[in-house]
Design a protein around this nucleic acid. Structure first.
Lengths: 139, 139
DNA sequence: TTAGCTGCAAAGTATTTGCAGTGGT
DNA sequence: ACCACTGCAAATACTTTGCAGCTAA
């Protein structure tokens, strides 16, 4: 058993989820990639595993709810999913509008905005911030 | 003819679009509301007009492409649309996660981020930034 | 007159659900 | 053994498309 597989078993177990071949495979795929993948992309990369689309979506939903992965909506009309890792807890992305490459960016929203919103009565604040543009290769 | 109707006729004409009852009605509905509406909400408010859903979506698409309106994706699984007005050119929103009230916020992303992205080779930059939380009433 | 707009019906895309069987723990 | 997980098929939600007729300019 590879160590990543073992890690993922432990991870699943920790979150009270059962360890199945498909789930390990999904986490394996997500763990191998630094940028968020679509259900479609995950499917393609799961070529050695026999599985059903509905189950994939169900697993992704469960993983997202237990915060094992994070669902990301970049306005493409479908979701992307990335594995949650302590190193890159909360972060934002830039996406190339041409080649669709997605990178993390080391900045967050200005605290000024959250402060303003708290001041006018908002609570339980969260936010989304994404950038789009042509990457250096596509420019 | 009401002055808003007249304004919208001129607006459509300016953008090279034909003036039809449905289009005037859509712009009328959007013009009356300060927060972005869904296709569903627009439909409901068009109760006096006889129209087809496909045509509504086609009009919204056309309006968005000609920048008469702006399509907004707040990650709800459907689009929202707001009329473009010079006063509030580019702006961002806060949405109450409970009552779905949407407000404009008078802040934009820090220039630091765009500068960083330009420095690493990105061009044609754009961005999205939205806040979510419980509004003062729902808190 | 003639593009552009429209209604109708059907299709498309991403995701979800019901149900009965299987498999992890 | 029990319940979470699974496959299969069908359904859902939002939006788009093809086509033929209509209408604003």
């Amino acid at each position: 058993m590879k160590s990543t597989e073992n890690n993922h078993s432990i991870l699943l177990h920790k979150h009270g989820l059962k360890v199945t071949p498909l789930r390990l495979a999904i986490l394996d795929v997500l763990g191998r990639h630094h940028s968020p993948l679509t259900a479609e992309e995950i499917s393609t990369k799961l070529k050695d595993v026999d599985f059903d689309r509905a189950t994939l979506f169900r697993s992704l939903k469960t993983f997202n709810e237990t915060e094992l992965i994070r669902a990301i909506d970049l306005g493409e009309g479908f979701m992307r999913y990335e594995i949650v890792c302590e190193k890159h807890d909360h972060h934002h992305h830039v996406m190339c509008t041409n080649c669709k490459k997605i990178e993390m960016i080391p900045f967050c929203v200005p605290p000024q905005i959250s402060n303003h919103l708290l001041k006018v009565g908002y609570t339980n604040l969260s936010h989304r911030m994404d950038f789009f543009g042509l990457c250096s290769k596509c420019s």
